[in-house]
Design a protein around this nucleic acid. Sequence first.
DNA 1: ATAGGGTTAG
Length: 704
Amino acid sequence: MTMAYNLCSSPSSPCPDHHFLFCNTLSAPRPLNLTPYHPLPKPKKPISISPHSKPSLQITHVSTQNPPSAQTPSPNQNPDHKTGFSSKTHIWVNPKNPRASQLRHKSQNSRYDSLVKVAGLLNSCNALEKDVYSILGELGYKIVEQDAVIVLNNMSNPNTAPIVLKYFQERIKLNKEGILYNVTLKVFRKCKALDRAEKLFDEMLERGIRPDNVTFSTIISCARLCSLPKKAVEWFEKMPSFGCEPDGVSFAVMIDAYGRAGNVEMALSLYDRARTENWRIDAVTFSTVIRIYGTSGNFDGCLNVYEEMKALGVKPNLVLYNTLLDAMGRAKRPWQVKTIYKEMLNNGFTPGWATYAALLRAYGKARYGEDAISVYREMKEKGLELNVVLYNTLLAMCADVGFTDEAIDIFEDMKSSENCKPDSWTFSSLVTVYSCCGKVSEAEDKLNEMLDAGFEPDIYVLTSLIQCYGKANRTDDVVRTFNRILELGITPDERSCCCLLNVMTQTPREELVKLTGCIEKANPKLGAVVKLLVEETNIEGDIFKSEAGELLDSIGADVRKAYCNCLIDLCINLNLLERACELLDLGLTLEIYTDIQSKSPIQWSLHLKSLSLGAALTALHIWTNDLSKVLEDGEELPSLLGINTGHGKHKYSDKGLAGVFESHLKELNAPFHEAPDKVGWFFTTKVAAKSWLESRRSHEVVAA
DNA sequence: ATAGGGTTAG
């Protein structure tokens, strides 16, 4: 017998234009070069790897020389051959046709699937030689090394895996025993069992099997997964003594190990070494390095690595794009996220779940409400499920930008989804949603819904509710809710104190005393500072400033600006402009506020983005004083003066700073006018500013 | 899928 497939390439052939692969639906003869492995000597009978399947359906008739059934005619004998028609039992497939490879895959799949099934049985059986061997016995005698690799590679039970290894060692003539050890190491890695991996390594040496780079990278990544970076280093350093030169993958694993351990410096120095030693660094390694830069907050580092990669001619892959998108999201650079995402689509990549998750996180964090919602819709259209974290990210964004209706829809969708349930984060975002639009009873309903769902009230949801009552000027309910926090044994945190402080900025003067009591209980230091303001205590020199400075030093960097903004707002409400200036000055000294004023030869600017209204007015007051001083000193103003209020996506504010600020500028008769083409900018000319500042000064003189 | 590295967060 010659070939079981027929190449009809001769001009006289009935099918001159095509090469046909002769396929039989019962037996699947196939070209030799496609045979995945070569069991030698060739079995006379098909190897039964799947005990339950009929011989005729087995995939082991891969040997083209050995059709499994004598009844199967060879193509040359096939009476239908010349006509090109298939008989009932045969189909003709062009080998260049995708169908041919589909059929090949199908036949391989059943073998692979059977071996995977066996691996599944071994994962859940007792770790007894008797039980393990009995399952493996089903494979029959004619198992080959590759079968053993597939079985072990699909295992996850660290107790049965060594017995399986032993079985194969006994039954198969192994040419590459090291491979079997390496896949068994992978099982231990899956279970984060470094001690077992190390034991197996010793056993390997005892049997005289030489470890290779695969062995080491598997053990190193196991140590990484176990969060044992020192062990990872130890194994990495062992490599040369076993004659193993670390290669690209070894470096990649070590870079990741250092990165996960928080040792950014070592990770990056290895990356440097890999570069200077001219290792071919691939996209996987680059994405690891980008992730390390991203999690350590060096976002420009991410982009530099990305540029380096492109310069080296390495093509980005989907994971790399996902990592980069995630990093730019953390960096709060949604515009960069958009650019990179566009590039990714242009390069033909299809976004996956991780891509959408990165986009949602980026847009949510940056309060790009419309963009976040459209990502959400796209995910729903594609049938991609969101998890709790993603839903909560969306809902938090809705609360931030005031998307009430969207939040309600998303919450309904979340409740109807199978795999995820609202948690206390969800409810607290919803309470915030209602609190922002002043719907007190709806906010209370959400708290009750949360309790009905079996959650304990927590600091987050109660803080959101305090915010809600505060906005509605229900001071007694604020106090009641705050006391509830204390009664539950919860210690108020920085955010809840900040919330109380924010409520104070919206509360009439006569009710403030009720809230100072709460704040004193929550944070005595803050209580003392607030009391100095509310009681309008006259104190000497810099005592207030030093008290406030001590307070701001004692709290986390993430809430410092919020505290400072609230305290200044409180001052403005209480007509304590001097105190407000002291606080703003303190904020500048402590670098809570930076770059409020800037100067270029043609334009001086006041940047009020991220300042509260009170802080913005205080900054304006100081700026105008500074400008007056310039005139007094006989110096020149630039031709243009600008105030930037930002685009106004502020939490808990309907219009944003820009809207409110405009009316204040009018009140002050300040000649600034909103720029039609630059959102959030107010401009005036040197001439107008000069006359305004001079008239202001003469008023002051009159007042004095 | 068929011996080694990467994307899941608030």
